[in-house]
Design a protein around this nucleic acid. Structure first.
Lengths: 191, 191
DNA sequence: ACTCTTTTTGGCACCTGGTATTAAATCCTA
DNA sequence: TAGGATTTAATACCAGGTGCCAAAAAGAGT
């Protein structure tokens, strides 16, 4: 039995729609050289919804992913904050934070959580990172919940700089440690 | 002339569709208590496309933003790369990177560019940031183009660690400098 | 060569969510 | 009360399908 042609076509169809979900059945007939009914049977078998449904799905995905894009403000959820003293934030490592090959979080996300917290804990109008000293103790992995704890070591209202120490844990294990020096507006703003 | 009802309806219609672009004209008639023709005239005047067009637009946006979503892989465009030697990347500060009150870039974005480049420049299957030492020399601001230059100082194939130095400039001015220690898979992978 | 099954086509009615056009009804106000 | 703006109605048409049924074509088995 040379049942291949159908399977092959199914594969091609899947591939085509994966790389361009905007194709109508009619356009697919031209690419695959079969009738439109065949295309529709194929979609049925492969459980691929019609064009409009595909677009709707994509639109829905993009609609609620607006919320989950944490690029703008604080990275991680701050669950406790004592200004000029200490703070705690939570951050869960999801697919978008990891190297896809290894499932290990990219360093800048772990840093972003710690940095956001270090800035937030400083009780001032303007607080900017001046310098930092980081240690990635062990990699954080997909699905892990990172708990960052920040302690203000010297707030130095006069000097314009504050020192903040941040420790990030997964469970009991420490995964990251950083010493931050934060500029605060009391001292100077910027050029 | 009590021309308000129309303008008011137009405003409501815009608002409704803004917060839920998935509404059909028929659903809108129920919300606004006017005939479907009125809804269509209104959309015409307001140049709001029909439901399917709206969904298509959203789908398209989300489709090619896959490329421009810089969350996953490398932050910044790498324009030059000599593995185990040096690399250059460009990154423009846009609204989403800054504190909205001050227009100053959040530190973790500047760090992310430098960190991505430091990892990219290491010629190895797996490269992870081990530790880093950072100096934010002056704030990067909205609209500025950051040029990060990375130099591998000691690649240490045996030791499993490489040292990378990164300098980030806006024009002639240095805004950031960092010393990175990168784990490379030659030495050890991970737990 | 003749079955039997799978696969592929074709045709037709129907659906949704519209556009386009023309016409009638309703307001408002000068 | 005439006249423009506004609203509603009615009808034809379109894209991109679904659902269903039948017929043609292609293989496979013996």
């Amino acid at each position: 039995m040379e049942r291949l042609p159908k399977r092959q076509r199914h594969q091609q169809l899947s591939r085509l729609l994966e790389e361009n979900p905007f194709l109508t059945d009619r356009e697919l007939t031209r690419k695959l050289k079969v009738s439109i009914q065949t295309i529709r049977l194929d979609r049925l078998e492969l459980a691929i919804p019609e064009l409009r449904e595909r677009l709707k799905l994509m639109a829905e995905r993009s609609h609620d992913s607006v919320k989950s894009l944490p690029l703008h403000e604080v990275i991680g959820d701050i669950v406790d904050l004592q200004l000029d003293k200490s703070g705690i934030s939570l951050f869960e490592i999801t697919e978008e934070h990891v190297f896809s090959r290894t499932g290990i979080a990219r360093g800048h996300h772990v840093f972003a959580q710690a940095n956001s917290l270090a800035v937030a804990v400083i009780n001032d109008e303007i607080a900017l990172t001046a310098s930092a000293d980081l240690r990635f103790i062990r990699p954080a992995r997909l699905g892990e919940k990172c708990i960052a704890k920040a302690y203000v070591r010297s707030s130095g209202e006069q000097k314009g700089k504050a020192k903040v120490e941040v420790f990030t844990y997964v469970g009991e294990e420490m995964v990251f440690q950083g010493n931050f020096v934060i500029y605060r507006s009391a001292g100077e703003t910027n050029t």
